[in-house]
């Protein structure tokens, strides 16, 4: 069954079709939420809320378009809505601190590649939110320019220019704060 057919069935109220779509896309949705928030529990809540919102809006979705960028767009908005509340944001920071101590792989468990990737993530977090978004979508989740444009709600040309600017800023951060990554680019 093609994705278009699955979406059409879900739009018609077939719960199984919707479950199949959720299964297919829960990983990128959860991962983007995690990259933006840095807290697994909060990211799970966001992912769950994303799919609930998506289901409510599914009737208006054009089934000929790819679903993943649309879901990631909802994910971004859901993250922002949550972070608007200062209280929740403070809680998330607390959880992040706790999680970094408890659940992040220890130095012994990390492979060198994982450690490098975590440094890269920390470097990306130093950037402005719009720079972070484009880097997560393009290079962490490996979306195409077109898909990233859909997820960000901007034109493809804007994604290209934003990517270029974000990479320049990332290089500056890496050179000054993470020289161990400096070999990249």
């Amino acid at each position: 069954m093609t994705e278009t057919e699955t979406i059409a069935r879900a739009q018609a109220g077939e719960e199984e079709a919707w479950r199949a779509l959720m299964q297919r896309y829960q990983q990128p949705v959860f991962r983007l939420a995690y990259l933006l928030i840095g807290d697994a529990a909060a990211a799970e809540d966001v992912a769950q809320e994303t799919f609930t919102r998506a289901y409510r809006g599914l009737a208006r979705f054009d089934s000929t378009r790819p679903l993943r960028p649309w879901l990631l767009q909802i994910t971004r908005r859901t993250v922002y809505n949550r972070q608007r509340s200062l209280r929740r944001y403070a809680q998330a920071l607390g959880r992040l601190f706790q999680q970094q101590r408890q659940t992040a792989p220890s130095a012994h468990e990390e492979t060198e590649a994982q450690e490098q990737a975590l440094h890269l993530w920390t470097a990306v977090q130093r950037l402005a939110r719009s720079d972070q978004e484009v880097i997560y979508l393009r290079y962490f989740l490996e979306l195409s320019v077109g898909e990233s444009a859909n997820a960000l709600g901007v034109a493809s040309g804007t994604v290209k220019s934003r990517s270029s600017r974000a990479l320049t800023r990332l290089r500056q951060v890496i050179e000054t704060e993470f020289p161990e990554l400096a070999s990249y680019g």
Binding site: F30, R31, A117, Y139
Partner: peptide, 17 residues
């Protein structure tokens, strides 16, 4: 950059269903 990011240790994706 993509090669480095691919090694990112994401937490296990929860079963939302």
């Amino acid at each position: 950059l993509v090669q480095i990011a691919r090694a990112f240790p994401y937490p296990t994706t929860p079963v939302l269903l």
